[in-house]
Amino acid sequence: MNITIDKNSGYCFGVEFAIQMAEDELAHEETLYCLGDIVHNRMEVERLHALGLRIIDREQLGTLHDCKVLIRAHGEPPETYQLAMQNNLELIDASCPVVLKLQNRVKHAFDISNRQQGQIVIYGQPGHAEVAGLAGQTGNQAIIVMNESDLDQVDFSRPVTLFSQTTKSTAGFYHMKQVIEERIAAAGADVATFDANDSICRQVSNREPALAKFATQHDVIVFVSGRKSSNGKALFGVVNKTNPRSYFVENETELQDEWFHEAQSVGICGATSTPMWLMQQVADHIAEIGELV
């Protein structure tokens, strides 16, 4: 059985940068707090916990004083920085540059939209950390949409400015864009007042065609990702559509022997939040299975 790990899978720049910053701090600090999971991958969170990284939520953040807190790649809304100043917290800001740039774009668009009685719409997962940071740039007035039914919140007689969470599916974004255009036209409004911004990270979107091609080159695909990962769900959808013998696992313990019966070639790939060491562990386990099936 031939087992290949996709060389284009694994951490994106933003996640790699955040984890490196955490490791650098923990090299000389016993404890470093992180607001939310540093990455949507349980195995990596557990590894960093052993080094001293402690995950906290927003309620716990409010109780901390005079210590260091890591801001992960997803970014944070303005109120997080205000609280840090009040509580004398030193922020280790590992916000992804792509996310920070998008936050600035959303803030600028919101200021303009306000003067035009318009609305900011964000195509993203409600409650996701990045989406919370983006909505925070609008004073939480942005309308968050995941599917067509969510668009019922939008007043299509008024101007609409659309952005996307950086890790969403490109196809999903353009479908939502088309539906909004149709609803604006149906409302008798001017489609020219609609401003759609494809703000999906190209490190993410460029993986979609590459993964689709990778999935055609193997009998079986094992996609490794944390189940909380929005990007993982989107990318698994790509490989599963291309190769129906695709399986989603969080780690090697979830592998099932029958998946590999009569398979000559197995491809292993993952999300932008999946560490390469974890994909290697999965590959090693599949090699052991291959000796048995």
Rank of each mutant, 00 (worst) to 15 (best):
Q203M: 01
Q178L: 11
A171M: 06
E181L: 14
F194A: 04
F194G: 08
A189W: 07
A185V: 14
I200A: 04
T193G: 06
A196K: 02
A212S: 13
H175K: 15
F214A: 09
V179N: 15
A192S: 15
V179F: 09
T167H: 02
P209A: 10
A215F: 07
V179I: 15
Q165P: 03
Q203A: 04
A187P: 14
A215V: 10
G188R: 05
N197L: 00
H175W: 10
M176E: 03
E182Y: 07
F214S: 04
V204R: 06
S199I: 02
I180Y: 08
H175E: 14
T170R: 08
V204I: 11
N197S: 07
R207G: 02
F173V: 05
P209K: 08
M176L: 15
N206D: 08
A212R: 13
T166Y: 00
V179S: 13
A210K: 05
A186G: 09
D195M: 13
T170K: 12
R183N: 12
F214H: 01
R207K: 09
F214M: 09
E181V: 06
T193H: 14
A215N: 01
I180N: 07
E208C: 08
S199H: 09
V179T: 14
S205C: 04
A192H: 12
T166E: 00
A186D: 13
Q203F: 04
N197C: 09
L211R: 13
T166G: 03
T167R: 06
D198F: 10
E182S: 12
A210R: 12
K168N: 11
R183L: 12
N206F: 08
R207C: 04
K213Y: 11
S199K: 08
